[in-house]
């Protein structure tokens, strides 16, 4: 196994562990993450509370475990919606070309010119903080990267002989796109989606950290870091552990994306 492959499998391992943690959170969490126990406030890490307890006396480990649910489900939803829109719009632009392509691309260029995170903050700020608005705000610019990638691949794949033969044999555009072109896009799209998951997890946590994401009652990693910031000196563990969870999950997606991209790159093989 090469070093790159090993790193990719480590990435897959991290992602799987985090997914299982999210799915089995009710079994794995030692306490109810929403339980308030004022006598247990700011307890340092111990056998009773492995990651300590926060300002409400809630168990930090349980909050970190439940936080995986929010981070993963929000990132997964955002990436799936963005991928779907990007794939559809990019396919239309790339396959039909001409004025339609130019119009779509200029619109994408305009959205691409906006710093995505800034627009997400502004949208959540005017729409009000909630998970739905958070997902919507991140999807508004999130799909443009996929659309650009898909369109670029289409321009190249459309000229290939097997696609040209399918068209000349009279296959309808939908069949050409779905049967002959899309299967070739799987690799690059999975790589992009993996980096997209990493970026979305950071964006979601950043918005929750600013109080613009998940409501404070929900155990999210960003929200926990925001709460922990006020008690950084007396209870640093409230901030340390959710941050490590974010780094680990983002690292997992980056390792996987990096490894897969190298594997799919013919120049490196």
């Amino acid at each position: 196994m090469t070093k790159k492959n090993l790193l990719m499998y480590i990435g897959i391992g991290i992602i799987l562990v985090m997914f299982f943690t999210a799915i089995f959170a009710p079994i794995l969490a030692p306490y109810n993450p929403r339980e308030i126990s004022l006598p247990d406030r700011f307890m340092s890490p111990s056998s009773a509370h492995w990651f300590g307890s926060d300002n409400d006396g809630s168990d930090v480990l349980s909050k970190v475990i439940y936080g995986a649910r929010i981070s993963i489900s929000v990132a997964f939803t955002v990436v799936t919606i963005s991928l779907f829109i990007g794939l559809t719009v990019g396919s239309i632009a790339g396959y039909f070309g001409g004025t339609l392509d130019q119009t779509i691309m200029r619109f994408i260029d305009m959205l691409y010119a906006f710093p995505g995170f800034l627009l997400a903050i502004a949208l959540v700020a005017v729409l009000g903080p909630s998970i739905q608005n958070l997902i919507f705000a991140m999807c508004v610019t999130g799909w443009t990267g996929y659309a650009r990638l898909v369109r670029g691949e289409f321009l190249h794949l459309k000229t290939r002989e097997y696609v040209q033969s399918a068209i000349s044999l009279g296959a309808n555009p939908l069949r050409v796109i779905m049967v002959h072109i899309w299967p070739n896009l799987t690799g690059p799209l999975v790589v992009q989606a993996s980096f997209g998951m990493a970026a979305t997890i950071i964006s979601e946590s950043s918005l929750s950290f600013l109080g613009l994401g998940t409501p404070p009652t929900e155990p999210s990693w960003g929200g926990l870091l925001n709460a922990g910031r006020k008690f950084l000196v007396e209870a640093p563990f409230i901030s340390i552990f959710p941050g490590l969870a974010i780094i680990l999950l983002v690292l997992g997606f980056n390792l996987f994306g990096d490894g897969l991209r190298d594997r799919l790159d013919p120049k490196k093989n």
Partner: peptide
């Protein structure tokens, strides 16, 4: 490098302060 890319500023900042 991968670790640096994965580290969000809102965690790094408080850790540097600490």
């Amino acid at each position: 490098g991968l670790l640096g890319m994965s580290m969000p500023g809102f965690w790094l900042g408080p850790m540097l302060i600490l």
